[in-house]
């Protein structure tokens, strides 16, 4: 396959970036998108040029480090697929492809296609956990968890933190990311007692990172490589309204609800 690649090059967040065009004549349809970039980079290195910076690690769609806006689509054209699992057979011979970094205020560019997504970690720091110290826990089967809740929690917990939702959202919103973590923890009895405080802190933390708000375009769930549904955003909204406007439950009420 022949591919024309327009790759975004940018020194750092404070520099202007621009596209650089490369012609690749020998692309195998069995290559992954990143392997195609590898080929380009080895060629650039051999010519003594600085290769295109992009991130990848596990290359099996789970670590969440790979990104790339591929011709206007986060993680490229295939649904439920990360860039590292996207194969060149999804493109046609002679295609021209534009590759851009994730763009969002909360994701400043580090170099070329690499962005700083630590804002997502900071959202988690605002309460995206169950406060349980090592050792101080009950026997695993002492609390039953309804299967449908465990399954639903798993649907939400499948998030890989890649930031495609933010990148695809016209508002650069991290609501799907935040909502998924909140849903994961609040659907399980272990996460319930802290739920009200967690949701208030995490929403506040999310806003503080400079993410936009949701205007219900649904682009995030289309871009999500784990197909996480915006139903979790609705749930977050519902729970946030309740937690913010109703009196806070006492600890004993919450434990009873567990």
């Amino acid at each position: 396959m022949k591919i024309t690649l327009n790759v975004w090059r940018q020194r750092d967040a404070s520099s202007e970036g621009s596209f650089e065009t490369h012609q690749l004549d020998d692309v195998s349809p069995d290559m992954s998108f990143l392997e195609m970039l590898d080929v380009l980079n080895r060629r650039l290195e051999a010519e003594g040029k600085v290769p295109v910076a992009f991130e990848s690690d596990c290359r099996e769609g789970i670590c969440g480090v790979c990104s790339l806006m591929i011709s206007g689509q986060a993680h490229g054209p295939e649904s439920g697929t990360t860039t590292c699992q996207l194969h060149m057979r999804s493109f046609k011979d002679g295609d021209t492809i534009f590759v851009e970094p994730w763009r969002a205020k909360a994701f400043p560019v580090i170099r070329d296609l690499v962005t700083d997504r630590s804002s997502l970690d900071r959202v988690i720091q605002c309460g995206g956990y169950v406060s349980v110290n090592t050792g101080s826990v009950p026997e695993a089967n002492s609390v039953q968890v309804a299967k449908e809740n465990a399954d639903k929690a798993m649907d939400a917990a499948a998030c890989i933190g890649c930031g495609a939702c933010v990148a695809a959202c016209p508002n650069g919103s991290a609501m799907l990311f935040t909502a998924a973590k909140l849903a994961h923890l609040s659907l399980l009895p272990q996460g319930k007692p802290e739920h009200e405080r967690r949701i208030k802190r995490m929403v506040e933390g999310m806003d503080a990172q400079g993410f936009g708000a949701c205007t219900n375009h649904g682009e995030c769930q289309e871009a999500c490589p784990k197909l996480i549904s915006i139903e979790f955003i609705a749930k977050m909204n519902r729970d946030y309204i309740k937690a913010s406007l109703l009196p806070e439950h006492t600890s004993s009420e919450l434990l009873k609800a567990q």
């Binding site: 763009r103 016209p170 871009a223």
Partner: peptide, 13 residues
């Protein structure tokens, strides 16, 4: 929140 604009926009939904 969006910051800079994409050169290519290809909305899905």
């Amino acid at each position: 929140g969006r910051g800079s604009r994409y050169a290519v926009v290809n909305p899905s939904s």
